[in-house]
Every structure is written in C-alpha cells, then in structure tokens.
Design a protein around this nucleic acid. Structure first.
Length: 423
RNA sequence: GGAGAAAUGGCAGAGUGGUCGAAUGCGGCGGUCUUGAAAACCGUUGUUCCCUUGCGGGAACCGGGGGUUCGAAUCCCUCUUUCUCCGCCA
C-alpha cells in the first residue's frame, strides 16, 4: 500500500508511473485525494470541538473541588452542544477513513524507473542466461514418467490421501527433496541469512501485512474454525516477524531464510501447466527475506539475484534471469526478477524463483519502520526471493540428468543426497 | 474440552473516576568522571493523526470493539488473546 500522504502530494506521479503497470489509477487517485482533503477538514473540526470539551471538563473538575456547583452546572451545559457535534462528526470521519483504506488497498505499488513497459510475459527482458543445455535422446521422458519409472514420486497416492496437487515423494525422491532443502538452507546461512523455522499457518493481520489479504483470499487455504491461513510462501511469516516494529539503523539489513511447505489453492488452473510437478497445491520452498534501508534496497535486490543465480549454477541447470515488465509484475512489487530453468524433456522453461523489491509497500501495511539519523521514522524496504522452489527444480533435475540407466545427481547435491544416481 | 486468573510504555511493574501519556526500576540514548572501560552521578527517552513556512498548538492511543459520565487506564457490556490447574495428546 502506498502512503496517503504520498498520494496527496504526488497524484500525477502515481498515475503516470502506474501506466507502466497498465493500471489506470486516475479515478482511484482522484477519489483518494478528495477523501483525504475531506478527512483533514473533519479531523480539524473534530479536534477543535474535542479540545474545548476537554478544557471544560477540566474546569468542571476544579469547580466541584472548590464547591462552585453553579459554575460547574453552567460548564456542563456548555459541553452538551459540542458533544452533539462530536457525535455527528466522529462516525463520518470513521466512515471516510474506512473508505480511504478500502481504496488504498486497491492501488498497486508503483514500479521502479528501471522496469520496462509492457503488457505481458512477451515483453519481459531476459537479463542473463547461463548453464549448459542438455542433449537428450529422442525417447527422453518427462519427469512424471521418470517419477513412476524409478518409483520416487507417487501422484496417485497423493490423490488418495489428499487430492490432486499433493504429491507423495518416496525413497530417493523424498531424500532428494531433503537434500535440496539442506543445500539451499546451508548455502543461505553461509551467505549471511539467519535461519528461521516459522509457523506455516498465519492469522489475518499477517496475511494482510504482506498483501495476501484482502484481494488474494481465494488463493490461500483458509482454516475457518480458527480463522487461520496456510501460508502460500514463507515470505508471509518471515516478513511479519517485523510487523509493527521500529528498527534502528544498525539492525539493517535483516536477512532471514526459512524452509517451509507452501500451500496454494491455484483455483482454475488445468492442462499441461499443472501436469506432474509443474503446479502443486502443496510444495516445498526455501525463501530469503531482507529488510533493508531504502537507499540500499536495490543493492539488496541485485545481491539476492546473484545469490539465486549461484544456486541454480551449483545445480548445473540451464537458467535465464528475466526482468519482468510492468504488465507482468505483481500488484505489490516495485521490481521483480524471475528465474526460469529449462526442463529439457518438456522442452519448456519453468519459473523456479521470483526475487522482488516491494520498497515500502508492505511496510506501510504492517507499520514496519526504522529510525533514521535525523531521529525520524521511515518505512523500511522489504524484499524477498525464492531460493528456491523445489518442485520445478526437481522436475528439471530429473529430466535434464536422465541417462540410459537412471538419473544422475549433480555433484553439489551428492554430499546431501548420499547417492550419485537414481536407478 | 472443563475451572480459574490476567492483559498498562522496549521489558518488569504501580496506578480503581478529574492536572495520568501514565510512578518506580531495568534497558536505550547523551553527558560528567576515566588512558580506555566498568561503576557512580546528571540529563533524556512512545506512537499515530490534525493545524502551522517555522516556533509551537491540538486530538487519539493503557489487548480490540461498544457503553455510562461534564470527565474513564480506572465503572459496565462484549470479543480476542495469554497464563495457571484438570483432561487429552506428538
């Protein structure tokens, strides 16, 4: 969410910047600035009336103490009309503030200067590519066939136990998952991230803080009996650690990492996109989160991107880094890099990571601030990135490394998996 | 799930109707002292919003919401959360 003050000060800037995101903010911004002007006016009136009432009340107290009953009665009568005004104004102000809040959450984050314009995925920019494209035989199998052939992932059992999109990993498949998680966490910790194991169900305030609520409600699993949400990403609990906090300069940056299962309802998806591991309701992910000083958040974004690049490089997967265009970016992000790895048997690129700078968008929602040298409080910048999401990494690893008699495990993983080959 | 207790500033903890944004202690920050540090001493130390170019002034906040009252941290209602004991349980 953008700050109301910023919107009122720079309405044209916001409208023009949001054009990059193909978002027509004109009406919304106009409504907000109008409402803000009204809000200020009412607040002023209300404060003035309240101020007089408070003053009279203090006097009444003194009159009673001095035994001046008539003076007290007089003052008491004076408060009556003012209280009428207050009774009328206060709910109006409340309504306007609610109204403003409803509109504020509809306004997307403004993109960074370096975000290219564009409508959709075709307009994204490929920033860098790396890794070797594998050469596979014509009879190379997609990962769902490999999974069955080597008995390492059982999609049918997952359906039996839960439903589609909840795969069951077994044997070396399960071990490989664990190996990936450990590799990712260890690498993150080596790179300065503090490991955390957070709750994977969150309350409403947390889901609101990172922006899952109110608009993405249908994408989360909702535990209605307790009004909790299963996290769609560790970003939610990790960033909300700092909800309502005031950090000092020496606290910045805060760098956290966590492995969690992630849950997404993904309502409406179907077809080849959801085949095998391509899109799941439950999947594993290691996430990195940073809380950073506004002057350095873009350095962090680049550093995090290089960090994720290091991971895919270690896994020897062909990858490309994509700078999302305005139209393809998420509602909350100021700038996002996506990572895709090539899954050779499917002959397609799979998104395995998304690294974003949200600037102060989430901080405004969750009142996450830091104290600047001038002693004042400013919203901190929040960033996060997948490092990495496991299923599609698994898909690419299986497909790209298949040989005649099995699947080769990349060297970086062997010390974690304990085996060099799945056969 | 049953019974009881509680929720106050970064933390601990006073405050049961009037000058209480809130004693006191700890912590934090600044200073004195010191070669440096500690100790001691002195000072300082919440947030949001409104008005104001500035100086400054004002409103709100003692778990959330509502009520009583001229006036509420304090009284009433309600919700939530936490703790203790019992039950169940990895």
């Amino acid at each position: 969410m953008l700050s109301l003050k910023f919107i009122s000060e720079k309405p044209e800037l916001i409208v023009s910047r949001l054009k990059i995101k193909n978002f027509d903010a004109k009406d919304l911004v106009k409504q907000l600035t109008d409402l803000d002007a009204l809000r200020r006016k009412l607040k002023s009136e209300l404060d003035t009336s309240q101020s007089v009432v408070n003053k009279l009340s203090r006097e009444i107290g003194q009159y009673y103490q001095q035994g001046k009953k008539e003076d007290a009665e007089m003052a008491r009568k004076q408060t009556a009309t003012l209280k009428e005004d207050i009774k009328e104004l206060a709910p109006r102000l409340g309504e306007i503030e609610e109204n403003i809040q409803e509109l504020l959450v509809q306004l997307p984050n403004i993109p960074h200067d370096t975000v290219p314009p564009g409508r959709a995925a075709e307009d994204n920019l490929i920033v860098r590519e790396g890794g070797q494209m594998p050469v596979l035989n014509k009879d190379a199998l997609p990962h769902w066939d490999l999974a069955r052939k080597y008995d390492i992932i059982d999609f049918e059992l997952g359906v039996k136990i839960t439903g589609s999109g909840f795969p069951l990993y077994k044997g070396k498949g399960a071990k490989l998952q664990r190996a990936l998680i450990n590799l990712f966490l260890d690498t993150a910790v080596e790179s300065g991230y503090t490991e955390v194991m957070p709750p994977i169900a969150v309350n409403e305030a947390s889901a609101f803080g990172t922006g899952q609520l109110p608009d993405k409600e249908g994408q989360m699993y909702h535990v209605t009996a307790d009004n909790l949400y299963l996290i769609p990403t560790a970003e939610v609990p990790l960033t909300n650690i700092f909800r309502g906090e005031i950090l000092s300069l020496k606290d910045l940056p805060r760098m956290l990492t966590a492995y969690t299962p992630c849950f997404r309802r993904e309502a409406g998806s179907y077809g080849k996109d959801v085949k095998g591991l391509n899109r799941l309701h439950q999947f594993d992910k290691v996430e990195i989160v940073e809380i950073q000083h506004p002057d350095r958040s873009y350095e962090s974004l680049e550093r995090m991107t290089r960090y994720v690049e290091k991971l895919v490089t270690r896994l020897q997967l062909p990858y490309r880094i994509i700078l999302l265009c305005g139209g393809d970016m998420s509602f909350h992000s100021s700038k996002t890099y996506d990572f895709e790895v090539f899954s050779a048997a499917q002959n397609r690129w799979l998104e395995v990571s998304s690294v974003s700078n949200f600037e102060s968008f989430q901080s405004h929602r969750m009142m996450l601030r830091y104290r600047e040298v001038d002693g004042k409080l400013y919203p901190a910048h929040t960033l996060n990135g997948s490092a990495l999401a496991l299923p599609r990494i698994m898909a690419a690893l299986l497909e790209n490394n298949q040989v005649e008699d099995g699947i080769k495990i990349p060297p970086a993983l062997v010390s974690y998996s304990g085996f060099e080959m799945i056969s």
